[in-house]
């Protein structure tokens, strides 16, 4: 910054460390809880240092799950979450990039109608049309299926607009050069546009994977069969056990497992994540 005042630097670091602590504290407590035997967490003061049951607890949840919640193995729920998050991310990217391609690179009747129809989806999140959407999915026989978990969520105005925005910055001369080189619309898309969109696709993938993973209401609506539970909604079944105290050590192990994949993606692909986040909001 402009001037050099040592005490200001100290305050800056202090505030930031405070922020890091604030942000990390719940995670730490969850991790600590997940390493202790269940009886340590029934009353009194909760320990702040890890215990010795790390492997046992995680093995328990990944294997047989919590007996009190009906015994869905967390491993299976994580699998379901992975399938759902991947299908949503890939599905959204695929259908968005092709529709953006049509809207930008073709002129056809009803083009604007398509554009505005896609736009409208921005204003209709699941939360405002819970019941009728559920009915449609039920009528189509898509309850308790991976298709039901993912397909209704893969329409994406955000992704379509991002690709549209990007396509508009691709120089026209490139398209013309490709035409002179003999490339038709299909080859141009595959050979030129897709490779040029690589970073955008990757950034979008990171964001959409997280989006898919943290879905809660939708899996809650369309799954009744436990074998289709995702981990984020499944954890709710564990904490709201009617006649028993939650088994906190196992609940927290599950929470840690539920956070692990998306957080790992954010930390490992930070620059793509930031790019994706900023670009999709344009």
């Amino acid at each position: 910054m402009v001037e050099n005042r040592p005490w200001m630097t100290w305050i800056t670091h202090l505030v930031l460390l405070g922020g890091v602590l604030l942000v990390a504290f719940p995670l730490w407590v969850a991790f600590v809880a997940s390493t202790h035997p269940g009886q340590n967490l029934l009353s009194g003061v909760m320990p702040l240092l890890p215990g010795d049951r790390l492997f046992e607890n995680y093995a328990t949840v990944l294997g047989v799950g919590l007996k009190a919640s009906g015994g869905v193995p967390v491993g299976l729920m994580m699998m379901n979450s992975t399938v759902m998050a991947l299908s949503i991310a890939v599905g959204k990217i695929v259908i968005s990039i092709v529709s953006a391609y049509a809207i930008v690179y073709f002129r056809f009747p009803f083009r604007m109608l398509c554009f505005w129809t896609i736009f409208v989806t921005l204003m209709l999140p699941v939360e405002v049309r819970i019941l009728p959407t559920f009915e449609v999915v039920a009528d189509l026989g898509m309850l308790n299926s991976y298709a039901g978990l993912s397909i209704p969520l893969i329409a994406s105005a955000t992704a379509t607009f991002l690709f549209r925005q990007f396509f508009l910055t691709v120089p026209d001369e490139l398209t013309e050069a490709a035409r002179v080189d003999g490339a038709g619309p299909f080859r141009f898309f595959v050979d030129i546009l897709l490779p040029l969109s690589r970073t955008n696709i990757a950034a979008l993938f990171v964001i959409l994977f997280i989006y898919g993973w943290i879905q809660y209401l939708w899996p809650l609506l369309v799954t009744t069969d436990e074998s289709f539970y995702t981990i984020v909604m499944g954890i709710q079944r564990m904490v709201t056990v009617a006649d028993a105290q939650p088994q906190w050590h196992l609940v927290m192990a599950t929470a840690v497992l539920a956070m692990l994949p998306p957080v790992a993606v954010v930390v490992a692909m930070q620059s793509l994540f930031v790019k994706g986040l900023v670009e999709t909001e344009k």
């Binding site: 001369e173 013309e176 050069a177 030129i192 490779p195």
Partner: peptide
């Protein structure tokens, strides 16, 4: 054709 901005495929 040779274009003004060359129009080379960047990738």
């Amino acid at each position: 054709m040779v274009f003004q901005n060359y129009a080379l495929y960047p990738h």
